[in-house]
Design a protein around this nucleic acid. Structure first.
Lengths: 197, 197
DNA sequence: TCCGTACATTGACCTATGGTAAGAATTATT
DNA sequence: AATAATTCTTACCATAGGTCAATGTACGGA
């Protein structure tokens, strides 16, 4: 019996028996990426959902002024993909890059659809992923619309506690939509506040 | 033969024959809302996708400081729902409100699932809605992360050309994540620029 | 028609965040 | 260990956008 994170993840998220999950796994490529490697580049079509077995990915875009904007991080047990590109079969506007030495399962969209024919649980599973994704995106919008830099940072440390240490601040700043300098100031102020107590 | 917008919408989005679409329609309630009426309030469970046959809806949240933030507008031919609440069966964090006298089809989530058993096209359709939604949310995030107030306003007028006239500026400002005063200034500047040409 | 309410504009001022630049600290590379 | 390359911090000033208050404007209800 293997003990991949993906196995555990699927077991606790799909009501399917193990043989079927093994079947899924047997059709998924495993790949390793070094720090800095790209899993997807702007302009390419995205064909997979990437499951992070180990390591860390980031998804980002580059705007007209050449600035990077991080949409999302994906540490262990997270899926990352450009759903838009996969589904509408269009070139992606995003990059996906490894921030550490990272082990990934490539789950082909077509594979999931194939398996769904035999076992509806896979369909339900994909549906759950989509809804989780929507939930996540909606929270981000609310944050970006209303919260200050400080609030956003605090929220970030709350939902990604380990990333605060793993990821350089310059990237956290990009995720939060502020400059690294601003983040530095925010952290300084927070340190001051905590100290006074 | 009816000529609802929803019929047209479904016909061009699902490869199903008309009898099935009529079947769907026959199970959907039609409802009318006056300007200001709520279709959903914070704390309630959302059970429907609302299709706007005529009129205009907005979806918004209220933050800790009592400020409203508009997530989305839905004019004719748009679906609006709190997917999060529907799917995870949780109380919604959003309000949905009619901004004009509005006619809406209530599409129950359970109904779609039911129909999907007979005709896979409905499943595919729901999937398309989800992906459209994700696309839309992702664009908004990119906007909020990187664009200035002026850029965001210009983008807004591009994707919702008619709303620019239909919706009071105070609401557009709320959608853009800026104050009405700022929007007023942005418009003034833009007017100046256009004049010089 | 008048009034009241909501919306829009404008100006004066303020604050949070951005831009730039330099130096300190950390991390990677040889 | 030494050097190079990032990254982080800090200080200074610039600016977009927020806040508050005053005034103007449009619209709906009696």
């Amino acid at each position: 019996m293997n003990n991949f994170r993906l196995t555990t993840y699927l077991t606790s998220n799909i009501g399917a028996d193990k043989s079927i999950i093994d079947q899924l796994l047997s059709h998924c490529a495993i790949r390793q990426y070094k720090k800095g490697d790209f899993l997807l580049r702007q302009g390419e079509k995205c064909e997979y959902s990437f499951f992070v077995e180990n390591g860390l990915l980031r998804q980002f875009s580059i705007d007209d002024k050449g600035k990077e904007h991080i949409i999302q991080f994906a540490p262990e047990n997270w899926f990352m993909s450009d759903r838009e590109s996969v589904y509408f079969n269009q070139p992606s506007t995003y990059f996906i890059q490894a921030l550490e030495y990272t082990t990934v399962f490539l789950v082909a969209e077509t594979l999931l659809l194939e398996l769904a024919k035999t076992d509806a649980a896979f369909l339900a599973f994909n549906n759950k992923l989509l809804h989780n994704h929507i939930r996540h995106l909606q929270r981000r919008i609310t944050q970006l619309q209303s919260a200050t830099a400080e609030e956003r940072y605090l929220y970030f440390t709350k939902i990604y506690p380990d990333l605060t240490l793993r990821v350089p601040q310059i990237l956290i700043a990009s995720y939060l939509g502020i400059t690294p300098e601003s983040l530095s100031r925010v952290r300084k102020e927070l340190a001051g506040k905590n100290h006074k107590k």
